[in-house]
């Protein structure tokens, strides 16, 4: 037994799997360790924000396109999901897929005109887009019920079994987060993902090796907004009530802060960033008046002293593409050492 453990820890990459497995097991056991609705609620919020920050990381962290309107995609997903489930009695999982597609379409619509823009110009346009979407939520009363928002959005159900307990939502979001992480990990460590990252680094150099930036930017926008839509759809079903006040500029900024403080271009960073920034305001509740003040100061301090974030790209595994490509290489290398 001992030798197996030692063996596991000696192979590079293996111990990560073990650590990951233990972490997932702990997360799965969480509702049994702390069965407390408040903790579960916070954990579910963390899950939602993990998906949001992972998705934003796809545009901003990997492809290098600054986006300050992510809350709009989150909102579109929430409204689309809510309306489908409420008015058409559509199944949650189907609504999730439709939300992904509709929000992805919005991402494409925003992506096309912004292809020529960069940096701050892109920031203000995405910000303006977010504002316009918010105004539509408020003013298109026939559909969105205006500032009052939409109430009694049904909970998800799987073949007649309704997920109405909080811990069920917890497991649902846990599975969703793991699935997103799994797919994102595959994506960013692929040739496709590397091509995306060249656009962030240097667009002209990327073109000089045959990469067409337009394609990758648009796909990043579509996937990113689609994922934010999925998070929104889940959120709508979870809280059963949505209103325009959730999907505001501040939410966009918070998501961006999660990505940046966690570490641009790092999946682990997004997870950590989302967890930390969701927890900080909760932990600081006892000094509730000052918490946002501290939060602002923390953002500044972090940028001064640790601009690459909690888990920056320097921690990434080098040549991971090669490691993933072939066991054969890998084993050969180990033997030769």
């Amino acid at each position: 037994m001992q030798s197996i453990i030692i063996d596991l820890f000696q192979k590079p990459g293996q111990y990560k799997k073990v650590a990951g497995f233990i972490l997932v097991a702990l997360l799965a056991a969480f509702p049994y360790i702390y069965f407390n609705n408040y903790y579960l609620h916070i954990a579910i919020l963390v899950g939602i924000f993990v998906i949001l920050s992972l998705s934003l990381n796809l545009i901003t962290g990997f492809t290098g396109q600054l986006c300050l309107g992510h809350a709009a995609f989150y909102g579109v997903g929430a409204y689309v999901g809510a309306l489908l489930m409420k008015n058409l009695q559509m199944n949650f999982f189907l609504a999730l897929i439709v939300s992904f597609l509709v929000t992805g379409l919005f991402g494409l619509l925003l992506g096309i005109p912004t292809l020529r823009l960069r940096g701050d110009y892109l920031a203000i346009v995405t910000l303006g887009f977010g504002e316009i979407v918010r105004l539509v939520f408020i003013n298109w009363e026939e559909v969105t019920n205006g500032p009052m928002g939409l109430r009694s959005i049904p909970a998800p159900s799987i073949m007649g079994f309704v997920l109405k307990e909080r811990y069920m939502f917890y497991y649902l979001i846990l599975i969703m987060v793991l699935l997103v992480l799994f797919l994102m990990n595959r994506l960013i460590n692929s040739g496709f993902g590397m091509a995306m990252q060249t656009i962030k680094a240097d667009e002209i150099a990327a073109e000089s090796i045959g990469i067409y930036p337009v394609k990758y930017k648009l796909i990043a926008f579509i996937l990113s907004s689609g994922l934010a839509g999925v998070a929104g759809c889940f959120y709508a079903s979870y809280v059963s009530y949505i209103s325009p006040t959730t999907f505001v500029y501040n939410t966009s900024v918070t998501i961006l802060a999660m990505v940046v403080l966690g570490g641009l271009g790092s999946l682990a960073g997004s997870v950590i960033g989302a967890a930390v920034l969701t927890l900080i305001p909760e932990v600081l509740r006892f000094i509730s008046d000052y918490r946002m003040l501290l939060f602002g100061a923390l953002m500044v301090l972090m940028m001064i002293f640790k601009p690459e974030g909690f888990w920056g790209v320097s921690k990434r595994v080098k040549n991971i593409y090669k490691l993933k490509a072939g066991r054969r290489h890998h084993e050969r290398d180990i033997k030769s050492q």
Binding site: R186, G191, G210, I211, K322
Partner: peptide, 17 residues
């Protein structure tokens, strides 16, 4: 080098996933 390799940077998204 890998990212410049045409078969690497033209990897198909669906196949990657």
């Amino acid at each position: 080098l890998m990212v410049a390799h045409p078969r690497c940077n033209q990897e198909n998204l669906a196949r990657v996933l």
